[in-house]
Design a binder for these strands. Structure first.
Lengths: 210, 210
DNA sequence: CGCAATATCTAGCGGTCGCTACAAAAAGAC
DNA sequence: GTCTTTTTGTAGCGACCGCTAGATATTGCG
């Protein structure tokens, strides 16, 4: 699943890089950066924190990833693909908006409290109170895009008749987003998986009785 | 309501301070600090930011408030009394847990989007991703204490028969906390008062039909 | 007035921040 | 081997961090 590719991908044989080879595995180091930013956020994770946990020197970090901001962007992408994809999958795979939300909340309770990883969601927490407005805005847009995705999924169910015509899709999407954001916050504040599951079950009772 | 008291309070006449009098109003400066910490959080608000918005020099700040951490603690107290008291009031004044939550959510939608002030809740956002674990923990304890207060209010309603005996007070309290935290997050992310009110109305539908 | 007490201003402390110049090291090309 | 290319470690840049020493200004007291 995880390989040492990246420079020798795209079919073809390795193009044989010229100079001194890199002494660390880029993917492994990147994953360490994911954990650091996930746990402490963008600002509170210093470059020296990163070089320590990634096991490389500062010049190697800058040569391989650009600067702190570019590394964070890459971290967000990796996080989204590896740990934050459960929402998109639920929206795409479940037959109804309701089933998608139910699965999302159930999986969020597990994901946000998974042992061996930071609790909660990186996208929700890693760029709050940020000196750099662009970094803060990048995750904000991601959060709002998620809520917009919820809304369009619900509108699809309204169009198909699965949900009543009068349903307020935007408010329903915001409610779902609020529950997820609240679950992430409480995971950070020490709530257990079971507690989040009980919370989610109550939240699901806003939907018409099955 | 806001006065220039603090050194000459407690009945009695002014004790006539000896040395050079303070050149700024302590309460006014403190209120400026509230706004700064509220908007940017503990870490992202530097002492030079504070001295600028408070209109005083660094030595005056340290003489009047101790250090940055002590000023923040005082800011949190002022915030709680002046802007964050709506939850406690709803819990104390409304006859049922349900009415208290309904009022809390309605008022939160207004408070978290009030014009002329930072959006969202200081207690929820000002100490996330904090280098100092104690500061982060102090607001976390405040959040968890709020949820515990919700829970005991709901337990009271269970004991009085207002809520069914089988009600999961802890989960209901966590759900209320999640909604409030999610509303605060979305207020920060640009949601309007009306959008938060619609969200809150949906959230209220978890309660048994009236 | 002089004196003690407190506040303010200027200046700067030691430390960390993100980031980089520079030279040594390690590979392929010839 | 020598040359070129890239990475690595050392060392440190300028900027900002929270904070404070020391001198000066402004008050009440005698």
């Amino acid at each position: 699943m995880v390989g040492s590719e990246d420079t020798k991908t795209n079919a073809q044989a390795a193009p044989k890089p010229r100079g001194r080879p890199r002494s660390f595995d880029r993917e492994t180091a990147l994953e360490k950066a994911v954990m650091a930013f996930w746990e402490h956020g963008y600002e509170a994770t210093s470059v020296s924190d990163l070089t320590r946990v990634m096991g490389i020197g500062a010049p190697s970090l800058y040569a391989a990833f650009g600067d702190k901001r570019a590394l964070f962007d890459e971290v967000v992408t990796v996080y989204g693909a590896r740990y934050g994809s459960f929402a998109d999958r639920a929206l795409a795979e479940e037959p109804t908006a309701r089933a998608a939300v139910e699965r999302m909340l159930r999986e969020a309770a597990a994901e946000y409290t998974a042992p061996g990883r930071p609790h909660g969601c990186l996208v929700i927490h890693a760029a709050t109170n940020c000196t750099s407005p662009e970094v803060e805005a990048s995750l904000r847009e991601r959060r709002n895009a998620n809520i917009a995705a919820f809304e369009s999924r619900m509108k699809a169910d309204i169009a198909s008749g699965e949900l009543p015509p009068g349903t307020d899709a935007a408010a329903l999407a915001r409610h779902t987003g609020a529950i997820i954001q609240g679950m992430s916050q409480q995971a950070r504040d020490g709530a257990s998986r079971e507690e989040l599951e009980a919370l989610a079950e109550i939240a699901m009772s806003i939907w018409p009785r099955t």
